[in-house]
Amino acid sequence: MTEYKLVVVGAGGVGKSALTIQLIQNHFVDEYDPTIEDSYRKQVVIDGETCLLDILDTAGQEEYSAMRDQYMRTGEGFLCVFAINNTKSFEDIHHYREQIKRVKDSEDVPMVLVGNKCDLPSRTVDTKQAQDLARSYGIPFIETSAKTRQGVDDAFYTLVREIRKHKEKMSKDGKKKKKKSKTKCVIM
Protein backbone atom coordinates (compact mmCIF):
# COMPACT_ATOMS: atom_id res chain seq x y z
CA MET A 1 0.00 0.00 0.00
CA THR A 2 1.38 3.38 -1.01
CA GLU A 3 1.77 5.99 1.72
CA TYR A 4 1.43 9.69 0.95
CA LYS A 5 2.85 12.38 3.24
CA LEU A 6 0.53 15.37 3.00
CA VAL A 7 1.12 18.66 4.78
CA VAL A 8 -1.63 21.23 5.43
CA VAL A 9 -0.27 24.79 5.54
CA GLY A 10 -1.81 28.24 5.84
CA ALA A 11 -2.32 31.16 8.19
CA GLY A 12 -3.80 30.75 11.67
CA GLY A 13 -7.57 30.36 11.82
CA VAL A 14 -8.20 29.39 8.17
CA GLY A 15 -9.55 25.94 9.10
CA LYS A 16 -6.61 23.61 8.49
CA SER A 17 -7.45 21.44 11.51
CA ALA A 18 -11.19 21.55 10.78
CA LEU A 19 -10.56 20.30 7.21
CA THR A 20 -8.25 17.53 8.41
CA ILE A 21 -10.58 16.37 11.20
CA GLN A 22 -13.54 16.46 8.81
CA LEU A 23 -11.63 14.14 6.44
CA ILE A 24 -10.39 11.79 9.18
CA GLN A 25 -13.31 11.70 11.63
CA ASN A 26 -16.26 13.01 9.60
CA HIS A 27 -17.16 15.76 12.01
CA PHE A 28 -16.81 19.53 12.23
CA VAL A 29 -14.87 21.16 15.04
CA ASP A 30 -16.14 24.70 15.44
CA GLU A 31 -14.12 25.88 18.45
CA TYR A 32 -10.75 27.40 17.58
CA ASP A 33 -7.82 25.80 19.35
CA PRO A 34 -4.53 26.86 17.73
CA THR A 35 -2.51 23.85 16.58
CA ILE A 36 1.18 23.40 17.23
CA GLU A 37 1.43 20.24 15.15
CA ASP A 38 -0.86 17.22 14.81
CA SER A 39 -0.46 14.10 12.72
CA TYR A 40 -3.29 11.94 11.37
CA ARG A 41 -3.41 8.74 9.33
CA LYS A 42 -6.25 7.39 7.24
CA GLN A 43 -6.56 4.55 4.75
CA VAL A 44 -8.58 5.50 1.67
CA VAL A 45 -9.18 4.27 -1.86
CA ILE A 46 -8.36 6.83 -4.56
CA ASP A 47 -8.93 5.86 -8.20
CA GLY A 48 -9.05 2.18 -7.25
CA GLU A 49 -5.76 2.27 -5.32
CA THR A 50 -5.79 1.70 -1.56
CA CYS A 51 -3.43 4.16 0.05
CA LEU A 52 -2.48 5.49 3.44
CA LEU A 53 -2.65 9.23 3.95
CA ASP A 54 -0.20 10.53 6.53
CA ILE A 55 -1.43 14.07 7.15
CA LEU A 56 0.48 16.70 9.08
CA ASP A 57 -1.71 19.53 10.34
CA THR A 58 0.59 22.46 11.01
CA ALA A 59 0.68 25.64 13.08
CA GLY A 60 -0.43 28.77 11.26
CA GLN A 61 0.71 31.10 14.02
CA GLU A 62 3.86 33.03 13.22
CA GLU A 63 5.54 32.06 16.52
CA TYR A 64 5.83 28.48 15.22
CA SER A 65 7.30 29.42 11.85
CA ALA A 66 10.72 27.99 12.80
CA MET A 67 9.18 24.50 12.71
CA ARG A 68 8.05 24.90 9.08
CA ASP A 69 11.30 23.98 7.34
CA GLN A 70 11.36 20.62 9.11
CA TYR A 71 7.87 19.48 8.09
CA MET A 72 8.26 20.94 4.61
CA ARG A 73 11.33 18.74 4.09
CA THR A 74 9.36 15.55 4.83
CA GLY A 75 6.12 16.41 3.00
CA GLU A 76 5.45 15.04 -0.49
CA GLY A 77 2.52 17.35 -1.21
CA PHE A 78 0.99 20.46 0.30
CA LEU A 79 -2.55 21.77 0.76
CA CYS A 80 -2.13 25.56 0.81
CA VAL A 81 -5.21 26.76 2.68
CA PHE A 82 -6.68 30.24 2.96
CA ALA A 83 -10.09 31.39 4.22
CA ILE A 84 -12.35 33.00 1.61
CA ASN A 85 -13.34 35.60 4.23
CA ASN A 86 -9.74 36.57 5.07
CA THR A 87 -7.79 38.44 2.38
CA LYS A 88 -4.56 38.42 4.43
CA SER A 89 -4.62 34.60 4.57
CA PHE A 90 -4.94 34.57 0.76
CA GLU A 91 -1.99 36.96 0.39
CA ASP A 92 0.06 34.76 2.77
CA ILE A 93 -0.21 31.80 0.36
CA HIS A 94 2.60 33.27 -1.75
CA HIS A 95 4.97 33.16 1.24
CA TYR A 96 4.08 29.55 2.08
CA ARG A 97 4.59 28.50 -1.53
CA GLU A 98 7.96 30.26 -1.78
CA GLN A 99 9.12 28.68 1.48
CA ILE A 100 8.06 25.20 0.29
CA LYS A 101 9.92 25.66 -3.01
CA ARG A 102 13.03 26.90 -1.17
CA VAL A 103 13.05 24.05 1.37
CA LYS A 104 12.34 21.40 -1.29
CA ASP A 105 14.86 23.10 -3.62
CA SER A 106 12.42 22.66 -6.50
CA GLU A 107 10.04 24.71 -8.62
CA ASP A 108 7.89 21.62 -9.12
CA VAL A 109 6.30 20.55 -5.82
CA PRO A 110 2.81 18.96 -5.70
CA MET A 111 0.38 21.52 -4.23
CA VAL A 112 -3.32 22.30 -4.19
CA LEU A 113 -4.70 25.76 -3.42
CA VAL A 114 -7.68 25.47 -1.06
CA GLY A 115 -10.20 28.24 -0.36
CA ASN A 116 -11.90 27.17 2.86
CA LYS A 117 -15.07 28.44 4.58
CA CYS A 118 -17.02 28.71 1.30
CA ASP A 119 -20.23 28.23 3.34
CA LEU A 120 -19.81 31.75 4.78
CA PRO A 121 -21.61 34.68 3.11
CA SER A 122 -18.88 37.20 4.02
CA ARG A 123 -16.49 36.46 1.14
CA THR A 124 -13.55 38.86 0.64
CA VAL A 125 -11.54 36.68 -1.77
CA ASP A 126 -13.25 36.25 -5.12
CA THR A 127 -13.28 32.75 -6.65
CA LYS A 128 -11.77 34.16 -9.85
CA GLN A 129 -8.86 35.70 -7.90
CA ALA A 130 -8.06 32.30 -6.40
CA GLN A 131 -8.46 30.51 -9.75
CA ASP A 132 -6.11 33.02 -11.37
CA LEU A 133 -3.51 32.54 -8.64
CA ALA A 134 -3.71 28.74 -8.91
CA ARG A 135 -3.42 28.96 -12.70
CA SER A 136 -0.33 31.18 -12.41
CA TYR A 137 1.21 28.57 -10.06
CA GLY A 138 0.13 25.69 -12.32
CA ILE A 139 -1.76 23.97 -9.49
CA PRO A 140 -5.41 22.96 -8.91
CA PHE A 141 -7.79 25.16 -6.89
CA ILE A 142 -10.64 23.76 -4.80
CA GLU A 143 -13.15 25.57 -2.62
CA THR A 144 -14.07 23.76 0.57
CA SER A 145 -16.21 24.02 3.65
CA ALA A 146 -15.03 22.02 6.64
CA LYS A 147 -18.46 22.75 8.15
CA THR A 148 -20.60 21.27 5.35
CA ARG A 149 -17.84 18.89 4.11
CA GLN A 150 -18.07 20.39 0.60
CA GLY A 151 -14.88 19.71 -1.35
CA VAL A 152 -13.01 18.16 1.60
CA ASP A 153 -12.37 14.73 0.06
CA ASP A 154 -11.76 16.37 -3.31
CA ALA A 155 -9.00 18.62 -1.90
CA PHE A 156 -7.03 15.80 -0.28
CA TYR A 157 -7.62 13.32 -3.12
CA THR A 158 -6.60 15.89 -5.74
CA LEU A 159 -3.35 16.39 -3.84
CA VAL A 160 -2.69 12.63 -3.92
CA ARG A 161 -3.28 12.68 -7.68
CA GLU A 162 -0.83 15.58 -8.02
CA ILE A 163 1.79 13.60 -6.07
CA ARG A 164 1.21 10.57 -8.32
CA LYS A 165 1.65 12.72 -11.45
CA HIS A 166 4.82 14.20 -9.99
CA LYS A 167 6.28 10.77 -9.14
CA GLU A 168 5.42 9.49 -12.61
CA LYS A 169 7.09 12.49 -14.22
CA MET A 170 10.18 12.10 -12.03
CA SER A 171 10.53 8.41 -12.86
CA LYS A 172 10.20 9.16 -16.60
CA ASP A 173 12.85 11.86 -16.28
CA GLY A 174 15.04 9.41 -14.37
CA LYS A 175 14.68 6.77 -17.11
CA LYS A 176 15.61 9.32 -19.78
CA LYS A 177 18.75 10.24 -17.85
CA LYS A 178 19.67 6.58 -17.37
CA LYS A 179 19.25 5.89 -21.10
CA LYS A 180 21.51 8.81 -21.94
CA SER A 181 24.19 7.67 -19.52
CA LYS A 182 24.40 4.23 -21.18
CA THR A 183 25.98 5.73 -24.30
CA LYS A 184 29.62 4.72 -24.36
CA CYS A 185 32.59 6.34 -25.93
CA VAL A 186 35.21 4.09 -27.53
CA ILE A 187 38.68 5.48 -28.12
CA MET A 188 40.86 3.55 -30.60
Rank of each mutant, 00 (worst) to 15 (best):
E63S: 05
E63L: 04
E63G: 05
E63Q: 04
E63H: 06
E63A: 03
Y64P: 09
Y64L: 15
Y64R: 02
Y64V: 15
Y64D: 12
S65I: 08
S65G: 11
S65A: 07
S65F: 04
A66D: 07
A66R: 03
A66F: 07
A66S: 06
A66G: 09
M67D: 02
M67A: 02
M67S: 04
M67W: 11
M67R: 01
M67F: 03
R68L: 12
R68H: 15
R68S: 15
R68N: 15
R68E: 14
R68P: 07
R68F: 15
D69N: 04
D69R: 03
D69A: 05
D69W: 00
D69V: 01
D69H: 07
Q70Y: 01
Q70V: 01
Q70P: 03
Q70T: 01
Y71Q: 15
Y71E: 15
Y71I: 15
Y71A: 15
M72S: 13
M72N: 10
M72K: 02
M72Y: 14
M72A: 15
M72R: 02
M72T: 12
M72F: 14
M72H: 10
R73Y: 07
R73H: 07
R73L: 06
R73C: 08
T74V: 14
T74Q: 15
G75W: 06
G75S: 07
G75Q: 10
G75Y: 08
E76Y: 13
E76T: 13
E76M: 09
E76I: 12
G77N: 01
G77Y: 10
F78E: 02
F78S: 01
F78Q: 00
F78D: 01
F78M: 06
L79I: 10
L79D: 00
L79Q: 00
C80I: 14
C80M: 10
C80V: 14
V81M: 11
V81I: 11
V81Q: 06
V81R: 00
F82Q: 02
F82N: 03
F82S: 11
F82P: 01
A83Y: 01
I84Q: 14
I84K: 11
N86K: 05
N86R: 04
N86G: 11
K88S: 06
K88R: 08
K88E: 12
K88L: 09
F90V: 08
F90G: 05
D92A: 12
H95L: 05
Y96L: 15
Y96G: 03
R97W: 15
R97L: 15
R97G: 06
R97A: 13
R97V: 15
R97Q: 11
E98H: 04
E98M: 03
E98S: 06
E98K: 04
E98F: 01
I100L: 13
I100G: 00
I100T: 03
K101I: 03
K101T: 08
K101Q: 09
R102H: 07
R102Y: 04
R102V: 06
V103A: 05
V103L: 08
V103G: 05
V103P: 01
V103Y: 04
V103F: 05
K104S: 13
K104E: 05
K104L: 14
D105P: 06
S106K: 10
S106E: 12
E107A: 11
E107T: 11
E107Y: 13
E107R: 08
E107D: 12
D108S: 07
D108I: 06
D108Y: 07
D108G: 07
V109L: 05
V109E: 03
V109S: 04
V109N: 01
V109K: 00
P110A: 03
P110S: 03
P110H: 05
P110G: 02
P110Y: 01
M111D: 00
M111T: 03
M111V: 08
V112R: 00
V112Y: 03
V112S: 00
V112C: 03
V112W: 01
L113W: 10
L113C: 11
L113A: 04
L113V: 11
L113N: 00
V114T: 02
V114C: 06
V114I: 10
V114R: 00
V114Y: 00
G115T: 05
G115L: 10
N116R: 01
N116K: 02
N116A: 15
K117H: 14
K117Q: 13
K117I: 15
C118A: 11
C118W: 08
C118K: 06
C118D: 09
D119G: 07
D119K: 02
L120C: 12
L120S: 12
L120M: 09
P121W: 09
P121R: 10
P121H: 12
P121G: 13
P121C: 09
S122M: 11
S122K: 11
S122H: 10
S122A: 09
S122C: 11
S122V: 09
S122T: 12
R123G: 13
R123D: 14
T124E: 12
T124A: 12
T124Q: 11
T124M: 09
T124L: 09
T124W: 09
T124K: 11
T124R: 09
T124H: 11
T124F: 09
T124Y: 10
V125D: 11
V125Q: 10
D126R: 06
D126H: 08
D126K: 08
D126L: 07
D126C: 09
D126M: 07
D126P: 06
D126I: 07
D126F: 08
